[in-house]
Design a protein around this nucleic acid. Structure first.
Lengths: 167, 167
DNA sequence: TGACAATAGTTAGTCAGCTAACTAAAATGC
DNA sequence: GCATTTTAGTTAGCTGACTAACTATTGTCA
């Protein structure tokens, strides 16, 4: 994510515009500010999860498991839904196993595979975090009226589609 | 950052709302979408930098150095401006030293310290990347009219201020 | 049916973030 | 002027992201 604290001011942008052509100061400023603010929102969420002894990656795995009918899934499925590689999911699962928040059952049919299930402890952890999480999200989002929220999302979606300019 | 690919749909949110009170589906959906889209913008930037053999952390260090009058700074200053710890900056600088993009000079006055200077190779790297970067940013941002951009930033700033609800 | 391809998961190595503990040097203050 | 505190940077160990190479197993099909 964009860690940069010291965003370029007008003076810096002018200096760079001297050396490089086609520097649109406002575009650069807007783009960097969007990334910077997003980082800060993520960091706020991370800090919140940390107070409950969780990190984002592991929290998502627990939530993905809770979505399942029998609280069970496989490493591959979890990796795909979480948007990480299977290698990364291996590490996340190991951490959760160590903490006892998930349990492992070998698959009888496919001996390469196994399933991961949310344990009571894992469910308890979510029951501790989620009732604290939802009201905070609601409160935060409430500062923006609904119509503006829709507009905000619409513009961000436009940017996302346009982000192929970087490819 | 928010890696989660599989955002909750209405069905999932209803399921969670059964167990937890005060789940505002729209707030959660909006919040997660903002984080998700931001991640995708960052990933687009990362992919772009990767085509030039760079990663975000190192790129910012080079830019911070180029901003300086004599292309020189200290690890501590760089860490602060980049928004990372000095430990992290140690690692970034070592990578850049290995690649020859920055050079190190010991400080005569303070023997604990040293300065880091952008090398010709480092400047060349920026001269390769930046003229490719700026037009892309300009093109991407141009899909949103200026007034909407200002609104977008205003709303995001509101959210950022309100993100203290997570503390 | 037996070779080959595809799939599931792990391991090793890289990068980049963090904290905590450390060394060395400089600055402060009695 | 010496002890203490502060500062600069590094190191070690944790987390979590990646790729590439690996093992083991299952599936395919000639």
């Amino acid at each position: 994510m964009l860690q940069l604290k010291d965003l370029p001011d007008e003076k810096v942008l002018r200096k760079f515009a001297e050396r490089y052509e086609d520097v649109d100061s406002r575009s650069v400023t807007h783009f960097l500010n969007i990334l910077r603010i997003s980082t800060e929102l993520t960091e706020a969420l991370d800090r919140f999860l940390a107070t409950h002894g969780l990190l984002q990656g592991r929290w998502w795995v627990l939530i993905l498991l809770m979505r399942e009918e029998n609280l069970t899934s496989t490493p591959s499925e979890l990796a795909e839904k979480a948007g990480v590689t299977r290698a990364t999911m291996s590490g996340l699962i190991n951490g959760l196993l160590r903490d006892g928040l998930v349990a492992r059952q070998d698959d009888n049919k496919d001996r390469r595979s196994y399933t991961i299930q949310l344990t009571i402890a894992g469910q308890n952890k979510l029951d501790e975090v989620m009732p604290d999480y939802y009201p905070r999200v609601k409160k935060m989002m409430s500062v923006i009226p609904m119509q503006q929220r829709e507009d905000l999302l619409k513009q961000l979606l436009l940017l996302k589609e346009q982000s192929q300019v970087f490819d």
